[in-house]
């Protein structure tokens, strides 16, 4: 075992001409963790991930992925890293099973192709030409190709874009399975509920910098934020108050109403509220 870090990044920088895509990124991803990279379009998510995947060269910074520098990927390193890219590379003339079987040949520790096709939910489509698949099904094929080599580290770039809610839930189960088996997972996503459902930790990236890394429920001091208590007054209007001690307030209200408080809700900022505030500030 090399160390506890699957990924370690210090001072990563990448510019395209005058356009600085990644200004300075520091990042640690632990082995076995599910790490989500959140950020608006153009924040530098994909550039960062593609440098970690060995697709792009960086301008500056220290990067270690599974103990090696991804700027010089060798076959051994490639066989330990699974990649699900944002754009799909299609093999129109081939069937699902043919493509997965072919890619299994590239990996020394490849999984059984039929099992993987089944696992991503394409069992019924195994003999179908890939051009007949729906968008969501093509994405599952991408995932199948990403995990066929039984990677230690799996990158997923916006994996569920275009999925219907049911397909997303199934996909989340698959990610949890992989994680439970010990795979380290790095995913980028636009969906806050996805990050919240899957990630052990979330990194928020904006304007080419990581502005915070925390577990989803602690992001932006979410746990310590003021809670909003709202209720309906006897004349029927809505009242609300922000408080650091919501329990005390609810107790007061219960006493005042002599029992049930009409229309009572207690909320804290959602991940989305926190996230929007964070990227708005940057």
């Amino acid at each position: 075992m090399e160390n506890e870090l699957a990924i370690s990044v210090r001072g990563l920088r990448k510019a395209y001409g005058d356009n600085v895509a990644v200004a300075s990124v520091d990042l640690d991803v632990h082995r076995g963790e599910v790490f989500a990279l959140l950020g608006p379009n153009g924040a530098g998510k994909t550039t960062t991930v593609e440098i970690l995947e060995g697709y792009r060269q960086r301008d500056a910074g220290e990067v270690r992925v599974l103990g090696a520098d991804p700027a010089h990927p060798d076959a051994g390193w490639r066989s330990r890293v699974g990649i699900v890219l944002q754009g799909t590379g299609e093999f129109d003339e081939l069937t699902v099973s043919e493509v997965v079987r072919h890619f299994s040949g590239f990996y020394p520790e490849a999984d059984d192709p039929d099992k993987v096709v089944e696992r991503v939910g394409l069992g019924a489509k195994a003999k179908a030409r890939t051009h007949t698949l729906s968008g969501g099904q093509k994405r599952r094929l991408d995932v199948a190709l990403g995990i066929i080599g039984r990677p230690e580290l799996l990158f997923l770039d916006e994996p569920t874009t275009g999925f219907d809610p049911e397909a997303r839930r199934e996909f989340w189960e698959l990610i949890r399975d992989l994680s439970a088996a010990g795979t380290t997972i790095v995913l980028t996503t636009h969906y806050l509920d996805e990050a919240e459902a899957l990630a052990d930790r979330v990194g928020v990236i904006a304007a080419g910098r990581v502005i915070e890394v925390a577990p989803p429920n602690a992001l932006g001091n979410r746990q310590e934020s003021l809670a909003t208590v709202s209720w309906r007054t006897p004349d029927g209007t809505l009242a609300s108050a922000e408080t650091a001690t919501p329990t005390a307030l609810v107790y007061d209200l219960a006493a005042r109403f002599g029992g049930e408080v009409p229309g009572l809700t207690v909320t804290r900022p959602t991940l989305e509220d926190v996230y929007l505030r964070m990227i708005g500030h940057s």
Partner: peptide
């Protein structure tokens, strides 16, 4: 983040490349 089991390293997997 560090309590999960490490990736299983089993020799007896599918056929070699």
């Amino acid at each position: 983040t560090t309590t999960k089991p490490a990736a299983p390293v089993t020799a007896a997997t599918a056929a070699r490349r």
